[in-house]
Amino acid sequence: MVARTTQVLFETGCNIADSSMTRLGGEFTVMLILQLPLSLNSAALAERFQALAENMELTIQVQPLSAEQAAATSSANSLQSATLSVLGADQPGIVYRVTQLLADQQCNIIDLYTRVLGPAHQPIYSMVIEVEAPSEIDLQQHLQPGLTQLEALLHVEIHLRLADSSLM
């Protein structure tokens, strides 16, 4: 699927600026940020994908982005980042409660990745979240009390790792 998709991009002269591809259950999803050659617009690209979509039963969506929308690091200097990892017995509400706390503390989720580990009768839930927040906030101070409460409430371990911006 990846080879067939990127073959179309190669043949049309598109450049892959960024990509994320993953399989969830039996579904495979590809997200791409593309730079198109001047001779091609997004409607024409979508047309080039039509045959592939029909042959392989794919859902393909092509959406034009402005240069700002495409740039991942647009709002650069005013932001800091951190990683949050959550590990514990699977139960309803883990994602909701943790993400609600992040939203309340002005943390924006950039990436969220969950996986259920362990045997079926005793599932362990693992979640890793990458967040961005305004750099003037002391994230440790803002998040830790709420995270400690959630650890007790949900019986999970939560680790907050701030991105130290020192260079080596």
Binding site: T73, A76, L79, Q80, Y113, E132, A163, S165
Partner: peptide, 12 residues
């Protein structure tokens, strides 16, 4: 690379 590598937000 999925969970441990991050693009730097503010390049120093």
């Amino acid at each position: 690379r999925k969970t441990d590598l991050f693009q730097r937000k503010n390049r120093l």
